[in-house]
Amino acid sequence: MDRDLVEAAARGDRAAYVDLISARADHLFAIAQRILRDVDRAEDALQDALVIAWRDLRGLRDADRFDAWLRRLVVHVCIAQATRERRRVVNLRILPAEGPAAPDALLTVETRDQLERGYRRLPPEQRAILTLHHFVGYSSGEIAETLGIPPGTARSRLHHAHRAMRAALEADARPRVMGGRSA
């Protein structure tokens, strides 16, 4: 039972902790990859988050909240990493879409490109909000709890993120690849 594993891990049982994270790693990685839009950085962020979670596990008051707690930790690590990345890289770099492109009439290559560019312009927290909403399926209340912000703020930021994404789709679809430049 996971609760037993969480409690064992909190008592220092590393094997129990590895069991716990092994069962959750795929989902957490998928979240991290959606926020960061980069497999390598998502792996790094996930690994960091898993180590931090181990270090701070004794601070988890309710073992039943482990999943939400760990997810929140991953999201925060991703936001922090994306924020650092934004400071280093001023311009955008268009990356090829990762993973197999599903044959879907909705998502043409052009649309994907527009979404990708629009998404990368968003502040890291708004990316996390969109990921939590569209990928994890969180409501604005759950997003607020995850990010530690008021529900109204979560709703507002979700609205702004949607507006930004819509603007990206409506913008000129002409491909504009800007060179990466390190600050």
């Binding site: 990685f29 879409a97 599903a102 998502l107 569209h134």
Partner: peptide
């Protein structure tokens, strides 16, 4: 759809 795509 866009979020559903990608590595899992």
């Amino acid at each position: 759809q866009w979020f559903a795509d990608g590595p899992i």
